[in-house]
Amino acid sequence: MTGDDMNGEAWLRAVLAAPQAAPDERFVERVRRSVVLEARIARSHRSARRKLVAEIAGTVAVGAAFFGLANLAPGLSFHDLVASSGPALAGLAALTLWVLVGVPQRAPEGL
């Protein structure tokens, strides 16, 4: 690198040097609001996913319970089974649904 090259490079550095400026608070606030919004959207997506998983699990649990009960006593018809233990089964199913679906979602956290 020659002396002229060095001068040219130093000149380019001077010409292209970024000027020092105070932060643009309006832009900072704009980014802050966007990030807060982004965080809210991410939380609501997470919450919706958790709720969906809980509802699917509840539905599967109830379906499995009915299937299991229907196959417990091959000699009994489903009507006999429900007639003999219907209230208990209904209560069990309702309890299962309440536990799985009605589990309170975690409250959103503040940033």
């Binding site: 970024a18 932060p23 643009d24 832009f27 980014v31 990030v35």
Partner: peptide, 18 residues
């Protein structure tokens, strides 16, 4: 969040200029 805001404040000038 305030730490991130500080990072934005510190670097927004250079980033936007670029």
């Amino acid at each position: 969040m305030s730490a991130f805001t500080e990072l934005v404040r510190r670097h927004e000038g250079q980033l936007r200029r670029f």
